[in-house]
């Protein structure tokens, strides 16, 4: 990590990765580029935590995910998203994990999820991460991750979804 945050360098090197992640949430290219700008504004704002990050790509991944979810959480946008995309927040999930049921589940319940659980749900159900990976990414204990995801699984049972 550089001793100071060189935002231009960071953008050049990691901007495409960030944009790739964003496109999983926002399919419209123009909107995705707007969000890219916003994410890097947030990056500048959060430079302290950036300096402590093990790997820039990992840190940027979580910052981007949170930002996209926050943006989607806007009621209007959320409605549009659900209308437009129907079944999918179809970003590049791991090859065979995170297919429709999990995404559908999140889509169905995400109004009710608090931001932390929604983020964990995306990492778990869509990205296919383990509890340990989620714990490291979100800065909480594995136990907390497990407990929170158990809540999601309970909710899934209620609606007949398929949390794994």
């Amino acid at each position: 990590m550089p001793p100071t945050l060189d935002i231009d360098q960071l953008y050049r090197r990691y901007g495409p990765l960030v944009l790739r992640r964003i496109r999983g949430f926002f399919r419209d290219p123009a909107e995705a580029e707007d969000v890219l700008q916003e994410v890097f504004v947030r990056v500048m704002e959060s430079s302290d935590s950036f300096r402590g990050a093990a790997r820039p790509s990992t840190w940027l991944y979580s910052v981007t995910t949170r930002h996209c979810l926050n943006r989607l959480r806007d009621a209007k946008r959320r409605r549009e998203l659900l209308d437009e995309h129907g079944t999918a927040m179809g970003w590049g999930a791991s090859a065979e994990s995170a297919q429709q049921p999990a995404q559908l589940l999140i889509k169905q319940v995400w109004r009710e999820l608090d931001p932390e659980l929604l983020e964990m749900a995306v990492y778990y159900e869509v990205d296919g991460m383990s509890h340990g990976q989620i714990a490291e990414l979100t800065g909480v204990s594995r136990r907390t991750v497990g407990n929170r995801l158990a809540q999601l699984a309970e909710r899934a049972k209620d609606i007949g979804g398929g949390a794994r």
């Binding site: 992640r21 999983g24 790509s57 990992t58 991944y61 970003w91 590049g92 999930a93 791991s94 090859a95 065979e96 994990s97 990205d127 296919g128 991460m129 383990s130 990976q133």
Partner: peptide
Amino acid sequence: ARDGHLLELGI
């Protein structure tokens, strides 16, 4: 990922 395939973060 849990299923043994690459995470997006791995890519």
